[in-house]
Simulated scan of single mutants.
Amino acid sequence: MSQLPGLGKYNIIGFVTIVDVPRAKDFYQNTLGLRLILEEPPFALVFEANGIMLRLGMAKERPPAHGTVLGWQVPEITATVKSLAQAGVRFERYEGMDQDESGIWTSPTGAKVAWFKDPDGNTLSISEHPELKR
């Protein structure tokens, strides 16, 4: 059986739709600390996130999105939540989710997740995965 070429060895590119370009640029660059590498109006703002390309596609309206569209795996979620909250990020609370006072939910596997929205209402997350630590 021949080995399929696959995509596992290549970097992934993230795509998020934005409408309010100046607010999104400020949020992703100054609040989240991502490096803006290219502006391609009227198509996209391109950021670098730890070696991964993130393209914020410019649109007239944001298509409906269900669930989280983009997330970051972080080593210490509590410290990251605190840092982002100090930068002005407001964490979401969801009915029926047993979230702590900071908005962090612990999954049955022990992973911890907190959600927030960007200026266009896209749901983003940060998560800590003890089961993936080596």
Rank of each mutant, 00 (worst) to 15 (best):
M1R: 06
M1P: 04
S2D: 10
L4R: 06
P5E: 07
P5A: 04
P5R: 05
P5Y: 01
G6R: 02
G6N: 05
L7A: 12
L7P: 02
L7Y: 11
G8W: 01
G8F: 06
N11L: 06
I12Y: 05
I13F: 00
G14W: 00
V16Y: 03
T17Q: 15
T17A: 14
T17W: 08
I18L: 03
I18C: 08
D20R: 12
V21S: 01
R23W: 01
K25V: 02
K25A: 14
D26S: 13
Y28V: 08
Y28N: 09
Y28F: 14
Y28K: 07
Y28Q: 05
N30S: 13
T31Q: 04
T31V: 15
L32R: 07
L32H: 08
L36W: 08
L38N: 14
E40G: 07
F43Q: 15
A44H: 08
L45R: 11
L45G: 09
V46H: 13
V46F: 09
V46M: 10
E48K: 08
E48V: 06
E48F: 02
N50L: 07
N50F: 13
G51S: 03
I52Y: 09
M53K: 14
M53C: 08
R55Q: 14
R55E: 14
L56T: 08
G57Q: 13
M58R: 14
A59Q: 12
A59H: 10
P63I: 09
P64M: 09
P64G: 04
A65T: 13
H66Y: 11
H66V: 10
G67F: 01
T68F: 00
V69P: 03
G71M: 03
W72V: 10
W72A: 10
Q73Y: 10
Q73E: 15
V74Y: 00
E76C: 02
E76R: 07
E76D: 15
I77E: 02
T78S: 08
A79M: 00
T80M: 12
S83L: 11
